[in-house]
Design a binder for these strands. Structure first.
Lengths: 258, 258
DNA sequence: CGACATGTTGAAGCGGTTCAAGTAGGGTGG
DNA sequence: CCACCCTACTTGAACCGCTTCAACATGTCG
């Protein structure tokens, strides 16, 4: 909205070091020189407008994408034409990791709002991660975190009643926004209710009813896309479960000890 | 059953080159010298007996495990004590990838039968994959394949009615056995019905009824754990969906072009 | 051989979907 | 700038897929 459409390229060419997300995104604990090397292989490109594809299912895999601002959803299409939303992705997250395996994208990525990304050609990244051990390790950790996250989502889909799923989702969003320096208790849903429903394996009507229900219980306050969390503990009690949550992956927020 | 319990260590010390699974497991397209290096970091250990844990949720992550024979299931435990089965794993697959991220196992792995594995200390593997580009690439591909697989399983859990889930599962097993040189049309389920049900997000009774139903439709023949697939096309028609299937991951079977 | 695990089958109940009708923003063209 | 339309969302009511509960069957193992 407040973003200009014609982009000043020199401005966009912000290097990794200056990026406010650099702790979340690729370069974690890299030396200055290493950061520069990484910076050199990253392509900045014009923002992806709402509804535009970043990549499509079936396309050749060339690059990973780190989200700088905005948000995207990823989804697959079934043989019967139905979509299945896989995840919602916020700044600092890396998408495309599922495509390395067969050099072809296994899902499509659409911008939910004007979104800017860093394009990271995977071949270069791979080569660079041979030179920079910390980078290689970081990549392994990122991919592992995504696996962990997906397994958590599987658990939620397999076992949880609908209230739990939605409560988990809201808490997860809250955590992720907080991690990015936004309010943990107040945010906007960038996905439509039907996308959220799809992702959580339920009907859109159910989302509607649950949000109303949560509001009536004083847990949250809803106004269209705007959510305010009033009773996080209450939500947590409903969510129950597995420590992680049912939406998107790849936070490098890391809390491994050792 | 026909496997001796006391193991002859020198016999177990089969190197990767001689392992019949070496095309499925780690060393793909590695030069002889590289294979030797890999072989040196791999620890063979005594077989894991049925019901024994290979690792437990929450344990420190040290090694990945490549399955040489037998099978395992992995599962998480929820706060309420319920188990959620994540996957079933056959020879040639690599497990533990989800633990790299936070240096702690995010699930438990239990042998479904007497199972032998290669233990691969991850630190060494990581170091080695810096030396051997092909190994690094292979690891990335494996992890990516697991992500892809998990996303497929998520789709199945979120959208598919129970018949589809079970049909997909059976077909996936069939494929995986075939890939390992076993019959695609006849095999034994190594998981109990309740584990299968749990993994597919349904009740054990439903599995029972569906298997009976499939048999009555002439799609399969069931006798306890033994399954014979009579009409794979019919099953495929029921399964529908996403190309991949709702059980376990990390086949290096690869069919990437480029 | 008896006891416990595991699996089967039937019947009732319910969580969540589906269908259908209605409401409310938000953007567009007149 | 307002009327309109279209999309996104809400709400209600009927229905149904699957679970749950319960009783029974069948292997399997001590």
């Amino acid at each position: 909205m407040s973003k200009q459409r014609v982009v000043n390229l020199s401005e966009v060419r912000t290097q990794c070091q200056k990026c406010s997300l650099y702790q979340l995104c690729m370069p974690m604990g890299l030396a200055e020189g290493d950061l520069n090397k990484l910076d050199k292989i990253i392509k900045r490109r014009r923002p992806v407008e709402k509804g535009e594809f970043l990549f499509r299912l079936g396309e050749d895999f060339i690059s990973l994408y780190a989200i700088r601002s905005g948000s995207l959803k990823t989804y697959t299409s079934q043989s019967d034409g139905q979509e299945q939303v896989i995840g919602m992705h916020l700044p600092g997250e890396l998408i495309g990791l599922d495509a390395i395996g067969d050099s072809r994208h296994g899902c499509s990525a659409v911008a939910l709002e004007t979104t800017s990304v860093c394009e990271i050609p995977f071949e270069h990244l791979e080569a660079l991660s041979r030179e920079i051990p910390g980078l290689q390790h970081h990549l392994f950790r990122l991919m592992s975190a995504e696996i962990q996250h997906d397994q958590c989502h599987m658990t939620v889909l397999a076992r949880m009643p609908v209230e739990n799923r939605l409560a988990s989702f809201l808490l997860s969003l809250s955590d992720r926004y907080k991690l990015r320096g936004y309010s943990a208790s107040e945010f906007n849903l960038s996905m439509s209710r039907s996308d959220i429903a799809n992702m959580l394996g339920m009907a859109m009507e159910t989302i509607s009813r649950l949000l109303t229900g949560f509001q009536e219980q004083g847990l949250i306050q809803v106004e269209r896309k705007h959510i305010r969390i009033l009773d996080a503990a209450g939500l947590r009690a409903i969510a129950g479960q597995c420590g992680e949550l049912p939406d998107s992956p790849v936070d490098n927020s890391s809390s491994h000890s050792a």
